[in-house]
Each structure stands twice: as structure tokens, then as C-alpha cells.
Design a protein around this nucleic acid. Structure first.
Lengths: 341, 341
DNA sequence: CTGAAAGCGCTAACAG
DNA sequence: CTGTTAGCGCTTTCAG
């Protein structure tokens, strides 16, 4: 700031009122006479005054910011959720800080962001926060200002907004079954991830409900990446008894799988049908366009933000404490990667 | 913050020193006796003291944050740049605020972020800031704390870190020429975008240098999106005299193009070779894997951050003012979407 | 309805 | 080397 900064006092002087009155004109104009209000407004215009947020925040004992934790900023999957969060916060007087949990040492306690008065709240897209981090929140009484989006922490009562992952998996299996598929494989996400568990659970439940055969080798561990799709494809190619369809825990996995099958001359959907999960932008122009389960990622972000805003508006210590789990609906998007057996 | 917050005064009392000494122990421990330093450190540990950043920043007349402007947070292209920025700032005491320029009204001046003491600096990935925004920076003397990454503002002297877009385009054309292609088309980015201009310029220059034929209809306007690739494919299919190769201004365009050509029975690379730009994650597992120009997006972010950190360290008004243009090298990545004529 | 005054928690002269 | 003191710029009682 090179410009000589104009302070509230300058406005007060220009308007011939006290600083308290200027402050009121800003935060609660209703309680002022129209005359004074106008005078102040005129003075503000003339001086080009802008309130110093740092000072206001200090005085109001708040940080004026929230932290968003992203497992991997480089992963495009999260960008739409971020966009939703960012959009919902715009217009509020909270700044949005973003941090990748990638390089997060376990000794850099997240709760320090609160203790340092750097943030008033936290939205985590990462469900793999350590137990130490979680107890840190509770120990310092900030757990009422933490919400999860997309992922969540297994066993934690903190509020979360998530897709209906179980339903998504069921829809995928139902769709394949309707096309006549019986031998359905699944490439999971990484072990220890809550989404992995939910999607696998839904897949297994629906498969069993429909009385479809199950073979251990048809459930392959992956990690949401294209490389894990590639690995799964290689295993499938080597199988004695190949599945006729594969449900992948993410679209990226599906891409890796399809590309690798194609290299080996296995065609999708003619030889094997493939369903993804997420419906990222690319799916539509992949070859073949991918049948997948759509998650409303933007809405995940928006709703998590609204949950947090509710909590930020509450008296400290009086935040709603019920373990909110808000389920966002998913949808089967039929494209060309699935076909009758 | 529910916990009763411990202030610097509490530490001072516990250590039997003044608050100034505690402050020194924090910022400049060297000037203290070992004895006092230890006493303070012990008191800090006992009390669990953490400095209130808001207060410190107010006192130091800084915001402790930087703003990153992203044209479209939902676009995965930017995530790697963000990751680089975020990584480089971690460890510094600057928070990273992220804002989408999508919903940005032109009357919400960006300079207000500075004037409200919300940020100390700005990195813009958006080169389409209005003239009003730009003059706002200069008028308020904050232009020494603004840098651009990836994109830049045409005609502005503000520092920027960018890929060597012209070279990238030349490499693409050279590669196609080396494969025997003469009739080379180009799908551009959106009009008015600096990247569009640079890449088209490089393409045209190299084409002419090699004495390759040029036809107006072979230069098709796009906007970096898959949809514009789709549109370009339709036009190509309808052409009397089709190009044998297409250089696309982005990988996304290439995906849309290839998928749409394929639908019409035009094969890549057998019938038409395609080169993209960016080398986003997906390219490797697209079908066919895409030949493209790699941009080091992470480095773009890291270097822009370092440029900004230099400026933030300078005395206000004394920031380096030379119009830095830092070029980051690009690289041709040969995959399977290109082949000899 | 408006003003005076007391800080929010910290750092940086300025003395000693 | 350490303490005293005066604010950073704002909001919010408490009087009037």
C-alpha cells in the first residue's frame, strides 16, 4: 500500500461526526438519522475510504477466513467442488484459503490455523485426517466449525456432505445387469478411503441381491488413478475367466482400463462393458464416451459451505452439534462404454 | 475459538519478563540472553501460547495473504498451476486466497482487495483483466505487487511467467512437417486471449518458414474447449480439401476433435494427425494417446510465486519495476495421435 | 441518536 | 539486553 491510507478518523472529521458514528453508518445504518447517514456516506465517497478488514477482524475477534483442505490440488476432480465453495463464499465477508494436504506434516496441527486466528472455519475434502488432528479439533473446541465435503472421516460425528456413493454403485450394477451382464468386476479406490468402502459395499450388495456370481479376483484394488486402471486391465487380460463388465471407482480408472484393454485388442463395449464414477468433463469426449455415475461436485461444495456458514453464524460453543450427514443424489449417465453382452 | 485464548501478556507474566521481550523471543531470538530466551520458551510451552496473526498483521501493516485469480476454477487445466503456487507459499507466512474471475463484476475492483488490507499481493492466471482494473492497480500504487502466470495482459508491463507458446506452436508444426504433412490446420483459442495469439503466430510463422500451403479455412476459431474441437471436426469433415494434420490450441480441443472425427469414421492418426497443447494428465490414456506440447504448469505457478515473493520483500514503492517476462520452456511429447502421411 | 473512551493482541521506537 | 509506551484501525460499551 503506497497510497496514504485513509482511516475511519479521516472520514469522521470530514463528516463532522465521531468515529463511532462512521462505524455505525457502515455496520448498522438504520440507527442513524438520515441526515448524519448521508453526511457520512458523502464523506466516505469524497475520501475514498475503505474499511481495513484486518483491524475490523482483530476488534471483532474473528479471522474473516475459512480454510479448505484438498487432498491433492493437482487432481482435477476437486476443482469443481472448489468452484462451488468459492462461489458460495463470494458475497460473504469470508476469504477462502486453500491448502493441499499433500505436504501436510502430521505435526503441523490443523487446529493451529484456528489458534493463530487465521481462520474461523474449515472445510475438508480430505477424509484421511489423522486421529490426532481430529482430537485436536475437539480439544480446542473448534470442532463445531469443521465440516467435510465429498469425503469424511470414518467414525467421526462431524458434519459432512457427500454423494450417495452406495446408491451410485448399485445403479452401476443394476445398469450392467439390465444389459444382461452377470460377471461383473470392480476396481476399487485406495484402501482406507471412505469412498472406496462405500462404493465397494454398494457394488457387492447389489451384486448379491441380484444373485450374480462373485469371484475374489474380480474385485481389484486400485487408487482412483489411471495407472490403477491400467494395472487392472492387465490382470483382466490375464484372467482365465474374464468378467464381461467392469465397474470402476472413478472415471480416471475407467480411462486407464479402457486404453489398456484397447492396446491388447479387447474392445469396449463389444468385449467388455465399463462404467465409471464421477462424470468428470472428459467422459463425454472419451472414446468411447463413458457410461458413468454423475456426482454433483459443485453442489457438494455449495452445501458444505452452507453448513459451515450456519455454524459460523452460531455463538461459539453453540454450533449445531448433531452429526449431520447430507446425502447428495447421484445419477446414472448412459453413454457408449456399456452394451448388451 | 472457545478456548480461553492466551495472550502475549500471559506469557510475559509466566516468564517474568515484558511483552516486548516475548515478542523478541518470537521474531529475533538472537538478541536475547540465553537465560531469558529459555525462560520465555518455557513459558510459551507451558501456556500453549500461539501468536495471533490478525493482531500481528495489523500492527505490521500487512495482510499476510495473497490473492490468486483463476479464470475458471472448474477448469482442471489450472489445478497444477495452483498446486505449484500453493506449494511454494507453504512455509512462508502468507495465506493463499483463491478467487474465480468468472463471477467478477467489473465494478468490483480488484484493487479493493489491497485497499481493504485483505491481501499484500496478487497472482493472476487470467490475462483478460479489464483496462479499468489495470489502471486501478497503478493508480493506487499496488502494481508493484501484481504478477501474472500462464496468461498475461496484452501490452501491460507487469511481470509475467509464461510458457514459450510461440516455440510450442513451432515445434508442433515442425513435428508434423517431419512426418511429411503439408496441409496443416489449426484450431485456435478464443479471440482476445494472449495465448491464442501467440500460438497462432508461431504456427503461421513456422508454416510459412517451411513453405507449407496456407488456406484461410484451415485456421478455425475455437475456445480451448472440447466443444470447439467438436465444431472444428465437423467443419473439417465438410471440407473439399481436407488438411492431413491439425494442431489444436489445447488438449481439450484435440479430444473433442478426435472423438468427433472418429464418429464420422475419420481415423486418427491414419487419416488425420492431431497435435494438442498442454499435456494434461489425460493425454496419456486417451485413445489414441495424444501427441502434444508439454507446458510445465507447476513451474509456472512456482516461478510466479517467487517473482511475487521478491516484490513482497521489497520496500513498498521500491519493487523491481522492470517488465519481467519469464519464459518457461515447452517440449514436444510424441505419442500416437500423429503418424506419417 | 451520537460521542468519548477503552481496548482487540501485537510490535517497534525509545530509553535505560 | 530489556522494559515502557504508544499506537496499528476499528468496534462497542457506556453515558449523555
Amino acid at each position: 500500500m503506497v497510497q496514504k491510507t485513509v482511516r475511519i478518523q479521516d472520514v469522521a472529521r470530514a463528516a463532522g461526526v465521531s468515529t463511532a458514528t462512521v462505524s455505525r453508518a457502515l455496520s448498522n445504518p438504520g440507527i442513524l438519522t438520515e441526515a448524519t447517514r448521508n453526511a457520512v456516506q458523502e464523506a466516505i465517497r469524497q475520501t475514498g475510504y475503505r474499511v481495513n478488514q484486518a483491524a475490523r477482524n482483530l476488534r471483532k475477534q474473528r479471522a474473516g477466513a475459512v480454510l479448505v483442505l484438498v487432498p491433492n490440488l493437482g487432481n482435477p476432480f476437486f476443482s469443481q467442488i472448489l468452484a462451488g465453495i468459492s462461489a458460495r463464499f463470494s458475497g460473504t465477508d469470508y476469504a477462502v484459503l486453500i491448502r493441499d494436504t499433500e505436504g501436510l506434516q502430521d505435526d503441523t496441527a490443523l487446529v493451529d490455523y484456528f489458534l493463530d486466528s487465521r481462520v474461523d472455519g474449515l472445510i475438508s475434502l480430505d477424509g484421511n485426517l489423522s486421529a490426532a488432528q481430529m482430537t485436536g479439533f475437539t480439544a480446542h473446541g473448534v470442532d463445531g466449525r469443521v465440516v467435510f465435503a465429498c469425503e469424511w472421516v470414518h467414525g467421526s460425528a462431524l458434519p459432512s456432505v457427500r454423494s450417495d456413493n452406495v446408491m451410485g454403485a448399485r445403479l452401476a450394477v443394476q445398469h450392467l445387469h439390465a444389459l444382461g451382464h452377470h460377471r461383473i468386476a470392480h476396481v476399487t479406490g485406495p484402501e482406507g478411503n471412505v469412498l472406496t468402502a462405500a462404493r465397494r459395499e454398494g457394488m457387492v450388495a447389489e451384486r448379491d441381491r441380484l444373485g450374480l456370481p462373485s469371484r475374489a479376483e474380480w474385485i481389484m484394488r486400485g487408487d482412483f488413478s489411471m495407472e490403477s486402471g491400467q494395472a487392472a486391465a492387465r490382470r483382466i487380460i490375464a484372467m482365465q475367466e474374464r468378467p464381461t463388465a467392469v465397474f470402476c471407482a472413478s472415471d480416471m480408472v475407467a480411462f486407464g482400463l479402457i486404453a489398456t484393454l484397447a492396446e491388447a485388442g479387447v474392445r469396449v463395449p463389444e468385449d467388455i462393458s465399463v462404467v465409471g464414477f464421477d462424470d468428470i468433463e472428459m467422459t463425454q469426449f472419451y472414446r468411447p464416451p463413458l457410461t458413468t455415475i454423475r456426482q454433483d461436485r459443485r453442489r457438494l461444495g455449495v452445501r458444505a459451505t452452507e453448513l459451515l456458514l450456519d455454524r459460523l453464524a452460531a455463538e461459539p460453543g453453540q454450533e449445531p452439534r448433531d452429526g449431520v450427514v447430507e446425502l447428495v443424489g447421484v445419477q446414472l449417465i448412459e453413454r457408449a462404454s456399456t452394451a448388451p453382452v
